[in-house]
Design a protein around this nucleic acid. Structure first.
Length: 286
DNA sequence: CGGACAACCTGGTTGC
DNA sequence: TGCAACCAGGTTGTCC
């Protein structure tokens, strides 16, 4: 579920509502969500410590605590990480609950448990399990059109797969890759190496634009995602292709129909009519 | 290198 | 109604 805009929304909420608070107590319901640590060590690292900052790299949250410790959180598909009133209801999917010095509560909840929490030393976060394979963040200044061009140059891989690969550009998931390709009018079946420089520029702009707009809307809620305050986002209303199979293409002047295909076992939504760039010379049009 | 696939999980939806 | 099959925003590892 959570891609860059959702994780950035959570980060902003936690930056506002967690930083400066001290964690007074922690209870962990399931040890299998922990990486590179165990209940006892995580409880010790959190209890009595102040939250100094909440950062993000790609889809990962980086919570810096007093005591030279960093807690890394990846939300997987259904993970939620939010601050709520201490009286709010807690169910069996809340795997970590921390009481805060201001009387609020921090909850990590994850139905499918694809998410995880890792404990790392502040000076070696880069070598952590969670961050060691993460590339340049899609919203950072280092992610330029030139950088994107380098990533794609000469490669035969499916463009969509390359954009989903967190080791290259970090933060995009299935929804925003579909949306960015649509906005850039690039074929959903294009290969990395066949994009013209101008198409790479367009793709770069489209990626930044869709991520920025979604962050402004506090992310996309399809089923489980909530912000760091526990409420849904609203960008689902503004998706142009994702989940819109069978609908008329929303591009002005295009009479195409949004189509769902499967690539690498994951659904791709696109308009075969107006997403044509990058796929012109492959003889795959019909 | 690239892609296909399984695995890790639960729960909602679909179809017989 | 019941139940099996299938589907889902992610990541990692294996195999070919």
């Amino acid at each position: 579920m959570p891609e860059l805009p959702e994780v950035e929304t959570v980060r902003r909420d936690l930056q506002a509502h967690l930083v400066g608070r001290t964690i007074e107590s922690v209870s962990i319901g399931r040890e299998d969500i922990l990486r590179s640590t165990d209940c006892a060590r995580l409880v010790a690292a959190l209890t009595g410590h102040e939250v100094l900052s909440v950062g993000r790299l790609g889809k990962n949250l980086i919570v810096e605590l007093s005591g030279d410790t960093v807690v890394l959180v990846n939300l997987g598909m259904t993970g939620q990480f939010f601050v709520c009133e201490a009286c709010a209801e807690i169910d069996e999917h809340a795997h970590l609950v921390a009481e805060l010095s201001d009387g609020m509560r921090l909850v990590f909840r994850d139905i499918r448990r694809f998410g995880h929490i890792e404990l790392a030393r502040a000076q070696s976060v880069g070598e952590s399990f969670t961050l060691r394979n993460v590339g340049v963040d899609a919203m950072s200044d280092e992610f330029t059109a030139e950088r994107l061009e380098e990533m794609l140059a000469g490669r035969s891989a499916l463009l969509k797969n390359a954009l989903l690969d967190q080791r290259r550009v970090a933060g995009l998931g299935n929804i925003y890759v579909c949306e960015a390709l649509f906005r850039a009018r690039i074929s959903a079946v294009a290969r990395c190496g066949e994009l013209a420089p101008e198409e790479v520029q367009r793709l770069h702009r489209a990626i930044r634009e869709v991520l920025r707009e979604s962050i402004a809307a506090e992310g996309t809620t399809i089923s489980d995602y909530v912000t760091g305050r526990g409420v849904p986002g609203s960008f689902q209303e503004r998706l142009r292709v994702y989940g819109r199979e069978g609908e008329r293409c929303r591009r002005h002047g295009c009479t195409g129909t949004i189509t769902r295909i499967v690539q690498s076992n994951r659904p791709t939504f696109h308009c075969p009519e107006c997403q044509s760039s990058g796929g012109m010379n492959r003889g795959e049009s019909y």
